[in-house]
Amino acid sequence: MTIIATQALTKTYGGGVTALSDLTVEVDEGVIGLVGANGAGKSTFIKIMLGLIAPSSGGVRVFDLDPIAETDKVRARVGYMPENDCLPPDVSASEFVTHVGRLSGLPKVAARERASEALRHVGLYEERYRQIGGYSTGMKQRVKLAQALVHDPDLLLLDEPTNGLDPAGRDAMLTLVHRIGNEFGISVVVCSHLLGEVERICDSLIAIEGGRLLRADRISSMTAASDVLAVEVSEGTDELAARLRDLGFEVTPDGRLLLVPLDSDAAYDRILQAVAELDLPLHRLDQRRHRVAELFTVKETVDV
């Protein structure tokens, strides 16, 4: 099911700054990574989806609703976790999430129940009765996530959820996001400028740069048939490269390594055989999966 669809979406700010230009994309449910450098237009995209700002031209539909005309309906189904610090220090997490839950339209008792439920799901138990001011950054991020979950949205918009976390905290947060997307049945848009971290948990990926769409696709189709074999020999690298080319492989030298795409299972054996026939001292043979980042580098050079 398509949850977000944009048509030539363009947003130009007052000073002539173009934040988004001609963005056309359709997103299915699941965990979606929204990747781009700082200032690429990720936050603008999120604000438009929340109906906080109107697009300059083009259209956007969230759950087939117009965020500008049907703001309340869209916002009732969407939870937003901002990038910045947004928690009052002098109340407890439990009180705060309850309060925000009521502002999402939950009745008093339901808000309290859902708040402790949401806090439990993000991994805050007894701590939730302490004042937020005394929390670590990781706990604050969890509270921010809980407040976005409290009204049981169908879509979560997370703006840089791993910001300021240490590696362990990042992993925990990403695992949590993955669980929300897969076990809770809630679609998640994760904004990040770190491709490597979102690609691990996402089903699909939208990459934007300078407000333009770079690529939008499912991760599986991006990385399909993109396995390569890295071969390193102590000597005779050029010899081996020539031999492999003769055998019909596409060989890319990368420093002391030779990168050879693996298009079939037989290819592995044939490469190994070529090394053996040349009687070269084999140093390393390792099969790697293309990281999504490499796809973009290739694509960009093609573009230019």
């Binding site: 916002r75 937003y80 901002p82 947004c86 928690l87 009052p88 220090p89 502002l103 339209g105």
Partner: peptide, 17 residues
């Protein structure tokens, strides 16, 4: 002022409020 200080307003205004 408290709401401005703690930056909580984006949370309020991303809801139907």
């Amino acid at each position: 002022s408290r709401d401005i200080r703690s930056g909580v307003l984006p949370l309020y205004f991303s809801r139907p409020l």
